[in-house]
Amino acid sequence: MTSKTKHFQLTMPALTSILLLVSSLVGIWIADSEIQIFSFGDQWPDARTVPVVVLWLLAAISALRLILNFGEQKTPIGPVHRYGQVFIVLLAAIIALWSMPHFGFLPGAIFFGIVATLALGERRPLLVLGLPLIVAITVYYGGRYGIGVPLP
């Protein structure tokens, strides 16, 4: 006889549902301070009504998703080192964005492009350096002088 007991396993949908549940509860908690109401008489619904209703709905449905799919093992979280690579690319984008007001679009974009190329598995130096360089220069000069976008 096989046991039908379901065990909770942290899957990606469960993790995302928890994230959404927590975010919506935090949203409800800070709604009063983040949405100031200046009442000029009886004006229902006010600026806070819809956000609070939507956040409650999101919290309730995220919780329902967690309960209904308890024990679901369809989408495991996956290997942690792969998330590490995603976080490295994200961090590179953050550094590139942070540096753009100081050093300009071009160095930031080239740096981000190189990190992304490496994270995607390319190891040939010519492609790792050359590809982001060509694309960033084309986008920078094309955008700045072709379309007239004042890139930093």
């Binding site: 930031g108 981000f112 190329t117 986008v139």
Partner: peptide, 8 residues
């Protein structure tokens, strides 16, 4: 990588 730079 080209898409990433274009996205920026």
């Amino acid at each position: 990588p080209a898409i990433a730079i274009l996205a920026l």
